[in-house]
């Protein structure tokens, strides 16, 4: 595990707007400054500013269509794939503006991994799913690839279940296993940040519990941002929580505070289940 760009982090300045969220001494890694996003003429994100601290789990909550997934996809520029998307404001990762002209999007995505709502293993073998990511990184040595595949599967708590069928199709795994394989694939290339877009929403409670345990494990090494519509889940696994509503950031604070003593009325209504 290489340290994520220490020299860049040294230049980080504290965010100037909205909530100085609790960081437990963790420096901010992602800084969002006055970010607005438009789909054509429709504004999906309104003037958002906040920071995601390093090596903590930050949860994005809010009702459907509040922009939490859209914001998540700004961090690895997956929104680039959609037509008519326009962005204002800046997003900095490790102090670097990721929407700057000279940014290599491909490099960015290698540093910022992503796990999707619906598990999406490639129609290849379990082994090749992870090896594909490694080969993209330029790894060629077979033994090295095999080592990292095993290590990633261990980290994703999947090794014991699949070690005897590494060369079987990934599509034969159960939903929960597929999702953990996708996590293994994402962490195999050792990104700095792991974005998770409702990673457990399509899974049963048992598989969900496994994913949650895994997330708590992984935060030792990665900065995790997770979008979830499940408030208990946010409460269980996150350190900080951001509540979005209609494309605006309503409140961003320590998870315990958001759920027990929110500052805003809207947040309270949402977390107590009065709307959404």
């Amino acid at each position: 595990m290489t340290a994520p760009l220490p020299s860049l982090r040294a230049r980080v300045t504290p965010p100037d707007a909205v909530s100085p969220a609790p960081t437990h001494g963790h420096p901010p890694l992602i800084e969002v400054d006055r970010l607005s996003l438009y789909y054509g003429a429709a504004r999906a994100l309104h003037d958002i500013s906040f920071a995601v601290p390093e090596r903590l789990v930050t949860a994005f909550i809010g009702p459907s269509g509040c922009g939490k997934s859209t914001l998540l996809r700004c961090f690895n520029r997956m929104n680039d794939l959609i037509d008519n998307v326009r962005l204002e404001g800046t997003v900095r990762i490790g102090g670097e503006d990721i929407y700057a002209r000279d940014i290599d999007v491909i490099e960015l995505r290698k540093r910022v991994g992503m796990v999707f709502q619906r598990s999406n293993p490639f129609p290849k073998t379990i082994f090749d799913n992870i090896a594909y990511a490694l080969r993209l990184q330029g790894l060629r040595r077979k033994s090295e690839i095999a080592d990292i595949v095993e290590q990633s599967l261990h980290q994703a708590a999947l090794w014991e279940e699949v070690k005897d069928r590494l060369h079987a199709s990934a599509l034969g795994l159960s939903g929960g296993q597929q999702q953990r394989l996708c996590i293994a694939r994402a962490i195999a290339i050792k990104p700095d940040i792991l974005l998770m877009d409702e990673p457990a929403s399509a899974l049963d409670p048992l598989a969900t519990a496994k994913i949650e345990d895994l997330i708590l494990d992984l935060k030792q090494q990665f900065t995790i941002v997770i979008v979830t519509h499940n408030m208990q889940q946010a409460a269980r696994i996150s350190d900080a929580t951001a509540f979005f509503y209609l494309g605006e950031l309503i409140e961003h604070d320590a998870t315990s505070k958001i759920f027990t003593n929110p500052a805003r009325k809207q947040t309270e209504d949402y977390v107590t289940g009065r709307f959404g």
């Binding site: 997956m78 490639f122 994402a186």
Partner: peptide, 25 residues
């Protein structure tokens, strides 16, 4: 579409995703 997205999120180029993931699938 999720195959392409997964490949892109891992840092492959669009061409790599089309050639290495979509075409074999």
């Amino acid at each position: 579409r999720s195959y392409t997205e997964a490949a892109l999120a891992l840092g492959s180029t669009r061409w790599q995703a089309a050639w290495q993931i979509v075409l074999p699938a």
